[in-house]
Write a protein that binds this DNA or RNA. Sequence first.
DNA 1: GACGACATCCTAGCAACGCTAGACGTTCTG
DNA 2: CAGAACGTCTAGCGTTGCTAGGATGTCGTC
Lengths: 190, 190
Amino acid sequence: MSAISERRERERAHRHQLIITAARELAETEGWEAVTTRRLADRVEYSQPVLYSHFNGKEAIVSAVALDGFGELAAHLRRARQAAAPEEALRAVCLAYLEFATERPALYQAMFILPTDLTFASTETPPALRAGFDEFVSCFPPDNERRELFAEVLWSALHGITVLSESGRIPPDRQEDRLDFLVTRIAGAR
Amino acid sequence: MSAISERRERERAHRHQLIITAARELAETEGWEAVTTRRLADRVEYSQPVLYSHFNGKEAIVSAVALDGFGELAAHLRRARQAAAPEEALRAVCLAYLEFATERPALYQAMFILPTDLTFASTETPPALRAGFDEFVSCFPPDNERRELFAEVLWSALHGITVLSESGRIPPDRQEDRLDFLVTRIAGAR
DNA sequence: GACGACATCCTAGCAACGCTAGACGTTCTG
DNA sequence: CAGAACGTCTAGCGTTGCTAGGATGTCGTC
């Protein structure tokens, strides 16, 4: 393989990431409904068809953004857990989760609300998806046989709180009270 | 007002409901992405513009379906709560909620996931929206000052469990175990 | 260095979408 | 009976995601 085609491959990989970050920025500033293939192509200064040489379709682009998001979420939760004392880990991780969701609403939408190509709970599940969930699991002692179940319910509750308050179905204030209640109730199971 | 215009008003109201039920049926059999204004107009055997003489747009049609859904959900939860002994009410209502969500996925989507015109937690909130939430509140004793907060968190958890399992982000089995865990943990706060 | 083979990228266009203007026939009113 | 008012449809606008096919430039080979 020549040096030129190596360079082209590098440029291609770079452009691949450029599309992803452009989609994310556009979504974060103007919302996902503003992310059209035309506007996206404009942003990266290429024509529409090049998007399709990198991704199978718009859904695949959203999925790529979501995948990045899962990686960041996992790192964010991990930092929070490790910075806290063990008995405070549960609370810290939950707080970090709500922070992440409210500070990056567009990213969170790509991860949990918009339709994507990502497959969960399967052998092909990307590691980043698993990693975030594992942070919740790690808040419970290893000898607890039901820790996975606890983590699932905890995660569900946090997700529910996030989207119901985001969409105005429950009052947006009092988030801290909800967190308090949730953590103290669930922590008893630790 | 003449008898003729009365008849026309009746027919108009009938057609209004016809559009709503047609949208709902189409969504339940083929999913919401199949509900286009053209197909909907075909179904009710009118042209597209008549849809817009009844509703402000597609979102308003989805909202109307969702509103019906909230009424049915409230009734469903109420029946479950009243049929159960007081100490079992919490569990019965939660179970009824999950039942509703899994048996009418398209309806649930309209109520909680698709963008709608509905306003929540405001003075203009339709009674049906309030009624469902109140069923959760009623599971806690009236002298509990934090029962609204408990209901919010409980509802959030159930919603989270619903959408995360629906989208495959948590395994679809074990729903009953999650319900058990959630109820026993929350019920302690009663 | 010339040439066919190949890759890359863009112009142009398709079908489907939500939505609306304007024409047309029908019905009500003076 | 004339004309206003209403209800409905045809036709079309602008936008969407996506793709076919041609132009342009680069590659390995002689």
